[in-house]
Simulated assay, not measured.
Amino acid sequence: MSPNPGTSAPATRHVIVMGVSGSGKTTIAEGVTEQTGWAFAEADEFHPKANITKMEAGTALTDEDRWPWLGALGAWMQQKSAEGTSTVITCSALKRTYRDVLRSGLDSLDFIHLDGPAEVIRERMGGRKGHFMPPELLQSQLDTLEALDADESGVFLDIRRTPEQVIDEAVAWLKH
């Protein structure tokens, strides 16, 4: 990547593949990572054990549960940025306030919002094996989800398309 004007630090990009659980974040983020060569992180791996235990028990997380998790994700992106490395992260990023925490300390942050009908997502969640997020919590995520605001850099992509199509659309958008 080319250096930023007036600095010796390389330019970096940071993107969050966002959406409710079951929308395909990991599949799409891994595909974007393959095509861009950027560093990848699965946000679920940053959750403290207490959060995972709550979700496994069918209890929705509160904002208080999420703040340390979001802070850890933001710190990881800031560290990678300081190293000159661009990143792709999967993260539900359900609320504007969560996205603001993630954006803190970065020059910019782009969002790829995976969107689709609840029935499609519910069906996908029912077919997953070994994930701690039960389908019963989908409605709480849908109720919490706030669409990207006009001043947030992002794109909405339809999850009813094939993963390959969504990945290609995401990468094309990132090249804009």
Results as ranks from 00 to 15, higher is better:
residue 2 S to A: 14
residue 3 P to H: 09
residue 4 N to K: 14
residue 4 N to S: 06
residue 5 P to S: 03
residue 7 T to Y: 08
residue 12 T to M: 05
residue 13 R to Y: 00
residue 14 H to E: 07
residue 15 V to W: 02
residue 15 V to E: 09
residue 16 I to F: 12
residue 17 V to P: 07
residue 17 V to G: 07
residue 19 G to P: 01
residue 19 G to T: 06
residue 20 V to K: 05
residue 22 G to H: 08
residue 22 G to M: 08
residue 23 S to L: 09
residue 26 T to M: 09
residue 31 G to D: 10
residue 31 G to K: 02
residue 33 T to G: 06
residue 33 T to A: 03
residue 34 E to K: 09
residue 38 W to M: 01
residue 39 A to S: 06
residue 41 A to S: 11
residue 41 A to G: 05
residue 42 E to P: 00
residue 49 K to I: 06
residue 49 K to W: 08
residue 50 A to I: 13
residue 52 I to C: 05
residue 53 T to V: 15
residue 53 T to L: 12
residue 54 K to I: 11
residue 55 M to L: 14
residue 56 E to Q: 15
residue 58 G to E: 13
residue 59 T to S: 10
residue 60 A to P: 14
residue 60 A to M: 14
residue 61 L to C: 02
residue 61 L to E: 02
residue 62 T to C: 01
residue 65 D to F: 12
residue 65 D to I: 12
residue 66 R to V: 12
residue 66 R to E: 14
residue 67 W to G: 03
residue 68 P to S: 15
residue 70 L to P: 08
residue 72 A to T: 13
residue 74 G to W: 09
residue 76 W to A: 12
residue 78 Q to I: 13
residue 81 S to E: 06
residue 82 A to V: 02
residue 83 E to N: 09
residue 83 E to P: 01
residue 84 G to E: 12
residue 85 T to C: 05
residue 87 T to C: 07
residue 89 I to V: 04
residue 90 T to F: 08
residue 92 S to W: 07
residue 92 S to D: 10
residue 95 K to V: 12
residue 101 V to Y: 03
residue 102 L to S: 04
residue 103 R to P: 00
residue 104 S to E: 15
residue 110 D to C: 10
residue 113 H to R: 13
residue 114 L to G: 05
residue 115 D to T: 00
residue 116 G to P: 11
residue 116 G to Q: 13
residue 118 A to L: 09
residue 119 E to W: 03
residue 123 E to G: 09
residue 125 M to E: 10
residue 126 G to D: 01
residue 126 G to F: 03
residue 127 G to N: 15
residue 128 R to G: 04
residue 128 R to N: 05
residue 129 K to A: 11
residue 129 K to Q: 09
residue 129 K to G: 11
residue 130 G to R: 05
residue 130 G to N: 10
residue 131 H to E: 13
residue 132 F to T: 00
residue 132 F to Q: 02
residue 133 M to F: 14
residue 134 P to I: 04
residue 134 P to K: 09
residue 134 P to S: 11
residue 134 P to G: 04
residue 135 P to L: 12
residue 135 P to V: 02
residue 135 P to F: 02
residue 135 P to I: 13
residue 135 P to T: 07
residue 137 L to K: 07
residue 139 Q to I: 12
residue 140 S to Q: 04
residue 140 S to E: 00
residue 141 Q to L: 11
residue 141 Q to H: 14
residue 143 D to T: 11
residue 145 L to G: 02
residue 147 A to D: 03
residue 149 D to G: 08
residue 153 S to I: 12
residue 153 S to N: 11
residue 155 V to H: 06
residue 156 F to I: 01
residue 157 L to M: 02
residue 157 L to I: 07
residue 158 D to P: 10
residue 160 R to V: 07
residue 160 R to P: 08
residue 160 R to S: 07
residue 161 R to F: 14
residue 162 T to E: 03
residue 163 P to R: 08
residue 163 P to F: 04
residue 163 P to S: 04
residue 166 V to D: 10
residue 167 I to E: 09
residue 169 E to P: 06
residue 170 A to I: 06
residue 172 A to S: 12
residue 174 L to D: 11
residue 175 K to L: 13
residue 176 H to Q: 15
residue 176 H to E: 15
